[in-house]
Nucleic acid binder design. Sequence first.
DNA 1: CATGATACATACTATAGGGTAAGTACTTGT
DNA 2: ACAAGTACTTACCCTATAGTATGTATCATG
Lengths: 120, 120
Amino acid sequence: MTAIKESSTIQENKQYALEKCPVTFVMEKIGGYWKPIILWHLSSGMKRYSELKREIPAITEKMLIQHLKQLEADGLVIREAKPVVPPFVTYRLSNAGEGLLPVIQAMADWAFKVKDGEFL
Amino acid sequence: MTAIKESSTIQENKQYALEKCPVTFVMEKIGGYWKPIILWHLSSGMKRYSELKREIPAITEKMLIQHLKQLEADGLVIREAKPVVPPFVTYRLSNAGEGLLPVIQAMADWAFKVKDGEFL
DNA sequence: CATGATACATACTATAGGGTAAGTACTTGT
DNA sequence: ACAAGTACTTACCCTATAGTATGTATCATG
């Protein structure tokens, strides 16, 4: 039954969030600073690890690989490695990852509207 | 000119993010754990502070007021206080805040699709 | 035999965000 | 006189996230 304790932490309330707020469910997958940027760059197609590194110069390797792993674990991106040397590894969006593109697009639309002063 | 330093922190790259990734611009406004939940609850109309508190039982007063202030500062919600005692304060979405509803909706749609196994 | 390229891993530190607990101001009700 | 309700504020702590720096395996090439 996994009762919810009175003293509430984020961990303990994830179930609550899933039930009551699907938005938070999404934020758990693509929240944080770098994930949306990575997804944004993968939306234009499959990329090598080193390509992503070049296209997002500000990211550190630790952040890049860490978030790629998490996105993979969450089923949003697919990693494919060719057993050659030097390594050849590519990342691309899964079906679920592509399903996020409308979200990304809605965000981008809103951002541009704000910048164009459309809400003033 | 505010040149961008080589050693990059999130702060220093906010400009980059705004130019290159509108998604991050959105995350800066509604990222974090509680903001989307609050917006979600405000999407059904104007609410009193105490109503929000009741509807989101897991949130602490500190978090609630802190994020309401930030959302207000970002122009996403509008605060209205009646000069009575006990205080009567309401919060509602601004135009910009309502402009986020499609984003919220797109997120919710995706979350439900994931839960329904539509991407398997 | 050292260097470079690729795709990572790991140890440590710093900062931001969230959580706990308690206090404040003002007035009505008992 | 005291508690209760509303909308906060403040001080302190703790953890999750981000950043810095360095190390690893493999093979090709000079």
